[in-house]
Nucleic acid binder design. Structure first.
Lengths: 389, 389
DNA sequence: ACGGTATTGTTGGCGCACCCAACATATGGG
DNA sequence: CCCATATGTTGGGTGCGCCAACAATACCGT
């Protein structure tokens, strides 16, 4: 596994005349994030010269990163402009270990999931098992594309530099060098992150946080509450990659003992009240939407109150533009949005409150796969500035 | 007051061939942050070519941003290399309104406070008063330098775009357009921020957070607890500039009702126990260092426990490299460092805990002045990339 | 005193990325 | 069929950084 260059502020672009972020990366990022666009559009949006855009696109095509399609057939005055889009031949392998399965997928540079393998285990897989499962689908993952790397999203604390899983309670892992193991097993470069961090990356790319540069993301899954932060348009990883753990924030609703946010806001308690043994997010969402029950309603409001307390502190600390609620937190929110908003309005500092909007996550079950792949694509896009390639 | 360019990710360096951050800014930033250095040193550190460094330094001299001194007389083999340092003629006006005074200072690009005017008011000044006081010292602030702008550090919520003070409880201000007023009164460009945000900028530049890129800063002053966050080497301002308000974080030590962090960690209660009417930070620090008293000691430990709870959640959320404690929080910490560390160790997630070091702030009373000026210098350094000038 | 070695500033030539202007190409409308 | 409009393409210019060779200044040994 490759070490992430620390990119210190005082460091220099040693030895090369070219700054680390060129207009090549600018265009590639635009097409990656914003989808297909005509050369003319890119010219307008980028402010670059027509001829420059032409040269840059040609170079990106030469490197196999984008392809050019025939112009939009909607007839307009003037010479038609070819459509530039991400090459379907550039892809990443996304790996997401969960409590009862390991999901492996091929995601292309456009963000489309091209293949998905859900390897059920029925029990929390060991790291070695996970690696075996990935190795097992590697052949089946072959296709008309090249894998640029492997993106790993783990429900736990993962060291960003080498993919060492420090602690993943629901997988019962401690200090498992999964990143290194996957790198050796696949020969691919491995980029690793916490699952919620991958999630917020995806929501920022294609979801509910697309147009925001300051984002607070909270996700509720079977394995608790995780979070991700985007500041100045960049994912906050922290010193070693452990940022975003606000499921353990201490929260104390009025008159109650303080407990971790996860203890108050519990997916399991909702399932119990709904009489569901275990359920996918879709089923849970549906139930939360339809079931009328006094006890359930009371629990929902209690959980929203606790959530508001946790979110309040983070909103005051970070002054985000947008708060995105994913997983069952989104379903909770949808059931009584005004309740959460009211609680937040009453408690957050007014100026910070006024600049934030709270929304439900927009992406579905592919969220983590897209986010994990994005870890790889960030690297690919960065590297587009290098002369070599 | 000039609007801060939003600098969206998708935006481009429209119209210019040069990327927004050139090696010109790189060198200027190095000399600004790291102090004087010989050309040879700059060459080694930057990885740039000798001739390039020569050309860049010449250009910086031409623009009046740096000056070159005679080489270090310590005899070494080889041709002596001239020393490059920030020009003493480039300065910023720093303005810090407080509850009983308005401090105005001239700070030069090297970070030295060249003039300081403390205009006592004896009561919280109004915004109009503050502007008058600044206008009053403007003549006296003249000297062998040029003012590149005005940096404003306010104990409260300040909108970054225009310096509108949304709420400054201790000044009893609400929605005072101080930034605009100062801009009109002085003709200078105004950059504004919360005081703790200015503080962390200064600590990051010259103080206890110099070598860290992920910093959590908490400051305890007469006007409560403020904070600042640095991520990836950049100050986190949030969507509108209100980031860093973690004095209002809810905190509940075991068995106690949750209250705001500020309610638990209180400068006033320390003064009461010490029998001091009001005291400067220096006096308070000294007293905390020397006075042996059981009730005081108990209070100190209680406050540290509460502080640990607040810091714990932020450490888990942000995984910083360093936590810097300023003002009386630093004094508290120094009195019983092990107590705070122990409490944190017991509560923070282990991996996040292992990657963080807690230290006391290193800068003294000039902190806010240097930080406010830095708001201006950041802009100056950015602009060094523009061809014109 | 003098030449040798080491380090660094300086100069001229080159490459690369971008801009601009002019021209070529492709469309819709009279 | 020709014109107006919009856009790709080509050739030349500019700015910034690299490199190599040379000039300047130090220490050192004889």
């Amino acid at each position: 596994m490759t070490t992430v260059p620390s990119d210190l502020l005082t460091a220099s672009r040693a030895g090369t005349a070219r700054p680390s972020t060129t207009n090549l990366t600018l265009l590639l990022e635009r097409v990656h994030r914003g989808g297909p666009a005509s050369r003319a559009q890119l010219t307008r949006e980028s402010g670059l010269n027509r001829s420059t855009v032409g040269a840059l696109v040609t170079e990106l095509v030469r490197r196999g990163l984008v392809v050019e399609d025939d112009p939009d057939p909607t007839r307009q005055v003037g010479r038609p402009s070819p459509i530039v889009r991400c090459s379907p031949e550039v892809a990443a392998l996304a790996v997401v270990p969960e409590t009862d399965a390991v999901t492996v997928a091929v995601v292309d540079l456009a963000g489309a999931v091209r293949r998905r393998f859900r390897c059920e285990t029925g029990h929390p897989p060991s790291a070695a098992e996970a690696v075996e499962l990935v190795r097992g689908v590697l052949d089946a993952a072959a296709g008309p594309w090249q894998l640029a790397g492997l993106g790993l999203a783990v429900p736990g604390l993962v060291r960003a530099t080498d993919g060492l899983v420090r602690w993943a309670p629901h997988l019962e892992w401690r200090d498992e060098p999964l990143g290194t193991m996957l790198g050796e097993a696949t020969g691919l470069e491995v980029l690793a992150a916490n699952d919620a961090n991958a999630g917020v990356l995806a929501e920022h790319l294609f979801g509910a946080a697309q147009d925001a540069t300051q984002v607070l993301y909270l996700n509720g899954g079977p394995s608790g509450i995780g979070g991700g932060i985007i500041i100045n348009g960049e994912l906050v990883m922290g010193a070693e990659g452990y940022a975003g753990e606000f499921g353990h924030t201490q929260v104390a609703p009025p008159g109650a003992e303080p407990k971790e946010l996860e203890a108050w806001v519990s997916r399991q308690r909702l399932l119990d009240l709904l009489g569901l043994e275990s359920a996918s997010d879709d089923v849970l969402t549906d139930a939360l939407h339809h079931v009328e029950d006094e006890a359930l309603q009371a629990e929902v409001l209690r959980q929203l109150d606790a959530l508001a307390l946790g979110v309040r502190d983070m909103v005051n600390a970070l002054n985000p533009q947008r708060v995105v609620l994913g997983g069952f937190l989104g379903s909770l929110f949808e059931r009584a949005p005004e309740h959460l908003l009211q609680a937040l309005r009453a408690q957050a500092l007014r100026p910070s409150w006024e600049s934030v909007s709270v929304v439900r996550a927009a992406l579905g079950s592919d969220l983590l796969l897209v986010g994990a792949a994005e870890l790889v694509f960030q690297r690919v896009i960065e590297r587009a500035s290098l002369t070599a390639a």
